[in-house]
């Protein structure tokens, strides 16, 4: 396989890792005002992701860094072209990350309330905007011969892009609800399961429309198969939630999100950022890539360290495998 293809796959893997992992902690953040009835329950929710959210976010940093190194032109066009959405995502991730760490530092309800708002805002904004961004990458954006994005922010807010945003948003809410049902005990566990079913039904409808649309735009046989399996995984997950099998339910949304993102990348290949201005201006795995020397070097680094990272992150999830309930939450400081 070509080195550039290997790196296209690796970057897809990093984004998949990011969405299946941070997807549920965005979901937990978005559900904070919905699922929790009091401060204790809000703390139960936040503590289910407490030890892991930061590690989940590093998947994003690695995806960004790997794109910079392996496809500098892609990184440059994408990040400068999607300037405002990325600025909003950054603001959201900043206030969200600080909120987790600072929320419990003062025993005041007003203080906690403001940080709750930061968590909610900081989870909704990226959950929606990542979908918009990815849908637009797949659909193509105006790019000139210098690989400069020539559209505006309004270019990105087309119906397909907006639908993409709603799909990630609703999938992440479902994924988060499944995670809460899996990781908590007591009253909230049942409510989370019930909510996952209701939101999941909406997410399933939106996702199917989006995937069919995507299939029409960039599809081939492989994407069709992947999208069908993704949809089945989602339906299977909802079925498992219905019969109270929380582990399988979470695995269902996990797979559905991962496969859907994988399908987007398969449909994109060999482009990395198609141009709607002129096909000749499209960024591809060939014309956007780094040199073979850099790619080889990075392949070695990735081959050595990625399994290690997956290993110790999985170990962390195992260490914190216990369900959390309101009995486990100590009094505020």
């Amino acid at each position: 396989m070509e080195l550039t293809t290997i790196w296209f796959c690796l970057i897809a893997v990093l984004w998949i890792g990011y969405f299946v992992l941070e997807g549920f902690d965005f979901g937990v953040g978005m559900l904070l005002p919905v699922l929790a009835r009091d401060d204790r329950e809000r703390r139960v929710m936040i503590n289910t992701i407490g030890p892991v959210w930061d590690g989940n976010e590093v998947w994003l940093l690695t995806a960004g860094g790997a794109t910079f190194a392996a496809f500098p032109e892609w990184y440059a066009t994408l990040f400068s072209g999607f300037y405002l959405p990325l600025f909003l995502i950054l603001i959201a991730l900043i206030v969200r990350g600080v909120a987790f760490e600072y929320r419990h530092q003062r025993p005041s309800a007003t203080w906690a309330g403001w940080w709750d708002r930061a968590v909610i805002f900081g989870s909704y904004v990226p959950a929606f905007l990542w979908g918009v961004a990815f849908a637009n990458i797949v659909r193509g954006v105006p790019i000139d011969a210098d690989f400069e994005f020539t559209g505006t922010v309004m270019t990105l807010l087309n119906p397909y892009g907006l639908l993409g945003g709603l799909v990630t948003l609703s999938l992440f809410v479902t994924h988060g609800a499944m995670f809460i049902a899996l990781k908590t005990d007591g009253d909230i566990r049942g409510r989370a399961g019930a909510l996952a079913l209701r939101v999941g039904a909406v997410a399933a409808v939106l996702a199917v429309v989006f995937l069919v649309w995507t299939q029409a735009l960039t599809g081939n046989l492989a994407t069709a198969v992947i999208f069908v399996v993704a949809a089945l995984a989602l339906v299977g997950g909802l079925g498992a939630a219905y019969v109270g099998r929380e582990g399988f339910a979470f695995a269902g949304t996990f797979l559905a999100i991962g496969l859907a993102v994988a399908g987007l990348f398969v449909g994109l290949f060999p482009d990395v950022m198609p141009s709607t201005t002129d096909v000749a201006n499209s960024l591809t795995t060939t014309n956007a890539s780094a040199t073979p020397y850099t790619l080889k070097l990075m392949t070695v680094a990735a081959a050595v360290f990625t399994p290690l990272v997956v290993g110790y992150q999985a170990w962390t999830y195992w260490i914190f495998r216990k369900r959390i309930s309101i009995h486990h939450i100590p009094a505020a400081h």
Partner: peptide
């Protein structure tokens, strides 16, 4: 980024991964 990506991106990516 376009100019230096091949050189500068690698340490950045490895920094994140490692």
């Amino acid at each position: 980024s376009r100019f230096v990506g091949d050189v500068f991106g690698a340490p950045l990516a490895i920094e994140a991964l490692l």
